[in-house]
Design a protein around this nucleic acid. Structure first.
Lengths: 390, 390
DNA sequence: GTTCGCTCCGTGAACGTTCACGGCCAGTTT
DNA sequence: AAACTGGCCGTGAACGTTCACGGAGCGAAC
């Protein structure tokens, strides 16, 4: 354990080792390994065999040094809701940075989920790209193009949403069932007594939203037998509709104990509850995080929000894709991100992490907006320190 | 937007561009840039100037290709508590994998936090290492060695614990104040009515534990004015002592409403509560996650646990260190990881992530132990899918 | 004046790949 | 028989660095 001169990994075997062993030239080995023409099937097989047997792994440094074209990854994401998708793009950017300049990511944006992604995908396939990161809004319409990508050996990673019936390398998402289940458990444990809770969603026909509802139901009464699911409201991503329906529902259910707003934009519902003077008696849990919500959490009007961590989703997606492109490493085909439970006590920490990722850009997205007004639960200050245990 | 042949980044300038510009040889430029001897101060300055002016960045691929010695990072972590530190090591391993074989991590283990790390550090400095990841158990005793490392330009990253008064590149930790605050908020919101809650810790003299207490206090009554902090128990990381003290405290405080166990090993306290028949009336929040705890959460006997995410801490630490070693990129000197709130509803998802990281090894750490007995809240099954919104 | 030593600098060979080029040998066409 | 074709393969130059070697210049010691 003391000296041990850290024995060299015995010079990993390279292309020329294979050539020497087989008595052929390195050019031929190159052709065999990279699936190029101008080589007989027999020698190709021999090379491939020996390469596998010897455990050959290409030296990526040398490869990049030679043909200095970087790996190209196309990222196709919607514009709306900007805050969410921008964070996702940031996560990708952050994860891609260490690999520059061997990796070249280009971002393309289309207006709205499921609307305009197909032409972009066609174009990327035409222009030639090495890998794709997309958010399939309409999996069935996308399917033929994904099959085409698979045929051409272009790996595709799905983020946030999934296209489970199409060929794709893997999908990254905050498991919607768990997101709903966490919201249900929080609401169940936060709310004392008996009664009903309301569930706001976008479209129930949407897979993700339906999963959230199932998760929510599965844990709500398990956590608090006194609670049951009351009204289920589809807001259709429309501010005015959401506000109107929220108001109506609150009036129709004066006994409502809690709300789970699972749509991206929870503000209309929150404002309606406030205007109806119902906030006192309601426990509210929302989804995701945006500037307007920060203050509601800080003041406790929203008890908690379940954050789907777009930044992390982006990072995981890019890393998985790049690892596959470089060394054909294949991860489990469903990477599920653990959602954050964000409450008043950890809000600042979450926001800190969010703003940190903006060294390169605009910088003022979530945090700067609300300076240091409410002292966010006393900053830690140094005291005596001795030893520490996790 | 359509054609755009993705203009090449105009061939990043290299060592020979500088040489040509200055009318000297690449060997000299190399000596200047890498601080080697055998070069006059004048030419060195000229080269350094021009390099900065031209924005020269070394081609890492070429560098690695040539002098194929990898970057060496030494990781010094305790053995106990194995589960926690092993997970941390796994996080490092996982993050280091993409950079192999240009990165060579060697792990050294000492028995217990703060006990035996110093000789290891001395040895690593003597053997020559490019960077260090450590968990400073006793910052003041470590200080001179950290200064020595700084003098030799060897960057040091602290994980889990910190040595804020010594020079170090940065520290990664789950902010203990927030960990305590989250526990306090959960306990406050989970517990109805009025009364006292107990706080179990290791040593209050420990910085981290004291911070957790402060965080806990700051959010407990803010979340539930009816609750106040009752007994504070130091268990000194001793199973028997913890069990005995827990029993005594429970008997002395028959009205206790809740418990927060902030020590690594919460089992003695939990078992004492069970034996005393007090579990029904107690809301229990713990810290971190280990196999024995899984069942307690699943059955609801433990309401939630605040998980400090050693895996993520390891990943962040390694990435920060490697980025600094390669390109001198410097991140904020305090990387704070957002702790997970783990409850019954997301327990399986967290465990899934944990077990996934064991492709390479033993594999059966947390998950395999408890197969599929209790159906963990209905797996999602496919239904109709149309479009999706985050 | 030769030898030695020292400082500073240029030279060229690696490192593991990729790729364009050209060569050889079969078989087929003029 | 010469010329052409196409399949298969070897050759060698790059890619941007690092590093060992050696040489030019210059002053000091013999």
């Amino acid at each position: 354990m003391a000296r041990e001169p850290k024995l060299r990994p015995a010079a990993p075997i390279g292309i020329k080792d294979i050539a020497r062993e087989l008595g052929i030239s390195i050019g031929t080995v190159d052709r065999a390994l990279n699936g190029k023409p101008d080589i007989s099937a027999a020698t190709r097989a021999r090379v491939l065999d020996l390469a596998k047997q010897l455990g050959y792994t290409p030296n990526l440094a040398a490869r990049y040094l030679q043909s200095r074209k970087p790996v190209r990854i196309s990222v196709h994401l919607p514009h709306r809701i900007a805050l969410f998708w921008d964070a996702l793009r940031d996560g990708i950017r952050e994860a891609a940075a260490p690999f520059a300049p061997a990796l070249d990511v280009d971002y393309r944006t289309y207006p709205c989920l499921g609307d305009g992604d197909i032409p972009l995908l066609e174009q990327a396939l035409a222009d030639g790209t090495d890998g794709l990161i997309i958010a399939p809004g309409n999996p069935s319409a996308l399917a033929p193009h994904l099959r085409e990508a698979a045929r051409r050996n272009i790996p595709v990673v799905c983020v946030v949403t999934d296209a489970p019936d199409s060929p794709r390398l893997l999908s990254v998402s905050a498991d919607p069932f768990t997101v709903g289940a966490v919201a249900g458990e929080l609401l169940g444990r936060f709310t004392a007594g008996t009664g009903q809770v309301g569930f706001f969603t976008g479209w129930l026909a949407t897979q993700d939203h339906a999963d959230k509802l199932r998760g929510f139901v599965s844990s709500l009464s398990a956590s608090n037998p006194g609670l049951s699911l009351g009204p289920i409201i589809e807001a259709h991503d429309d501010e005015r509709e959401a506000h109107r329906r929220a108001r109506d529902v609150l009036r129709a259910h004066p006994q409502l104990k809690g709300l789970y707003v699972s749509t991206v934009n929870s503000m209309p519902v929150l404002r309606a509850a406030e205007q109806e003077g119902r906030l006192e008696g309601l426990t509210v849990v929302t989804t995701d995080l945006f500037p307007e919500l920060v203050d509601w959490i800080r003041t406790g009007r929203v008890a908690a929000t379940v954050y789907q961590r777009p930044l992390t989703q982006g990072r995981v997606a890019l890393q998985a894709l790049y690892q596959f492109l470089q060394r054909r490493h294949r991860m489990p085909d469903s990477q599920r991100v653990v959602p954050y439970v964000v409450m008043r006590s950890n809000l600042d920490l979450v926001l800190e992490r969010l703003s940190v990722d903006h060294r390169s850009g605009d910088g003022d997205r979530m945090v700067a907006r609300r300076p240091e007004k409410r002292p966010p639960a006393a900053k830690p200050r140094p005291t005596t320190r001795r030893r520490t245990n996790p």
